[in-house]
C-alpha cells in the first residue's frame, strides 16, 4: 500500500423507495458528481472543495431532493438544510430553513468560515445569506413540477386518511414523502477528509421542521482521525440514532472497518426505530463503507480510472471512466456555479 492516500469522492443521491423510472437519472447524477469531485482531488484540490463541488452539482440536478428540485412543505414552499464538516480543522457549518438560493451547501460553508457559530437557522440564516451576497432567486424558482406533484399526492393521501394505520415513526414508509437527501464524503491526497450533506427535507413537512441533515453526528460527521460519514433517509429516525456519529464511534471504539460499521449502524437503527436510511463512509485509510436499509440508495465513487456505483441492495458496478467526458462535465459545472 502506498503511503500517499488514493483520493476518493464518494457520493449518495438519497435513500428511499425510489421508483424504477427514476433509477437511471439518479445513477447518472451520482456518477457525474463523483467524477467532478474526483477530478478536483487529483488536481490537488482539497477534500472540502471536492465535496462542495459534488454537492453543488447534485443541488442543480432536479432529480435530487436538494437545491433545485427540493421537496415541498405543506404550504408548498421550499425550506432547505445543509451541513459541512472539515475533518482536518474540525470546523463545521450548518444551516436550516434556507430559502431562495441555489446552493445551501455553500451557505453552510460560509457559516463555517465567517461566523463564530456552527449552526444558523431560518430568519437568522437567511439574513446572514443576504449579507453574504448570495444570489437570491425569485420565490418559487426552486420548485419543480415533480415536487408539486409529490405534494399533491401527499395531500390526497392525507385526505383519505392514508396514515391512520401507520405509527408516527413510519412516515418515511410513504413513497410520496420522499426524503432523498444528497451527500458526499471525500479524502484528498493529503489524507484530509471532508463531508457535505444537503436536502430539501421530506414532502409535506410542516414549515419549520428541522431534520437530521444539519445536525452534527446525525446527518454529517467528520474527523481525520477516524473518517467521515454522510447519511440519508427518514430524518427523525436518523436523528434519534445519531447515525453518523454511531458509525464513527464504532470505527473508533470497536475497531470496526468502514463497511462493517456502516452496515451494522444502519441495520441497528432500522431494527430499533423502524425508519429507514443509509450512509456512506470513508475511513482514515481511505476504505469505503456503503449501506442502506431502504429499498434503494444511489451511490458512486471514482477510484483511479474506475467508477464504482450502484442503487439496488447488492449492486456494485464498475465502469472505466472516459477522461474527455469528465472534462466536459467539469466545464459545465464550472459555468453554472
Amino acid at each position: 500500500m502506498s503511503k500517499e492516500p488514493i483520493p476518493i469522492c464518494l457520493v449518495h443521491g438519497g435513500a428511499g423507495d425510489i421508483p424504477a423510472s427514476r433509477v437511471q437519472a439518479k445513477l447518472n447524477g451520482v456518477k457525474q458528481a463523483a467524477q467532478i469531485g474526483y477530478h478536483h482531488l487529483i488536481n490537488n484540490g482539497s477534500a472540502l472543495e471536492a465535496v462542495e463541488l459534488a454537492v453543488i452539482h447534485m443541488e442543480l440536478d432536479p432529480v435530487f431532493n436538494a437545491g433545485y428540485g427540493s421537496v415541498l412543505t405543506t404550504e408548498g414552499t421550499v425550506e432547505m438544510e445543509a451541513s459541512v464538516m472539515d475533518g482536518k480543522t474540525l470546523k463545521v457549518g450548518c444551516v436550516t430553513g434556507v430559502v431562495d438560493i441555489m446552493h445551501p451547501i455553500s451557505a453552510a460553508i460560509r457559516v463555517m468560515e465567517k461566523t463564530p457559530h456552527n449552526f444558523l437557522g431560518f430568519h437568522g440564516a437567511n439574513r446572514f445569506i443576504k449579507q453574504q451576497e448570495f444570489e437570491l432567486l425569485k420565490p418559487g424558482a426552486l420548485i419543480t413540477d415533480q415536487a408539486k406533484e409529490a405534494l399533491e399526492h401527499w395531500k390526497e393521501q392525507q385526505k383519505n386518511g392514508g396514515f391512520k394505520g401507520f405509527a408516527k415513526t413510519e412516515i418515511g414508509h410513504n413513497q410520496h414523502e420522499r426524503g432523498e437527501t444528497i451527500g458526499a464524503v471525500a479524502i484528498d491526497i493529503l489524507g484530509n477528509i471532508a463531508v457535505a450533506t444537503s436536502t430539501g427535507g421530506i414532502t409535506g413537512k410542516l414549515p419549520g421542521r428541522i431534520g437530521d441533515t444539519p445536525l452534527l453526528g446525525c446527518g454529517t460527521y467528520c474527523d481525520n482521525r477516524f473518517g467521515g460519514v454522510s447519511t440519508t433517509g427518514h430524518g427523525e429516525t436518523i436523528m434519534k440514532s445519531c447515525l453518523a456519529h454511531d458509525i464513527i464511534k464504532r470505527i473508533d471504539y470497536l475497531g470496526e472497518d468502514a463497511q462493517t460499521a456502516t452496515e451494522t449502524a444502519c441495520n441497528n437503527m432500522t431494527e430499533r426505530f423502524f425508519g429507514k436510511g443509509g450512509a456512506i463512509t470513508i475511513d482514515k485509510d481511505g476504505n469505503v463503507g456503503i449501506s442502506f436499509t431502504s429499498k434503494r440508495m444511489a451511490w458512486a465513487y471514482q477510484k483511479l480510472n474506475t467508477m464504482h456505483y450502484g442503487i439496488e441492495k447488492d449492486d456494485h458496478f464498475e465502469q472505466i471512466v472516459d477522461q474527455n467526458e469528465v472534462d466536459s462535465l467539469v466545464n459545465v459545472a464550472g459555468k453554472s456555479s
Binding site: 461566523t115 444558523l120 440564516a125 445536525l215 452534527l216 453526528g217 445519531c242
Partner: peptide, 18 residues
C-alpha cells in the same frame, strides 16, 4: 451576544441531550 438564529448544542439530539 450570539447572532440571531444561532442554534447551539442544547436542542441537538446527542449533542446536548439524550
Amino acid at each position: 451576544g450570539k447572532m440571531s438564529g444561532r442554534i447551539g448544542d442544547t436542542p441537538i439530539v446527542g449533542g446536548g441531550t439524550y
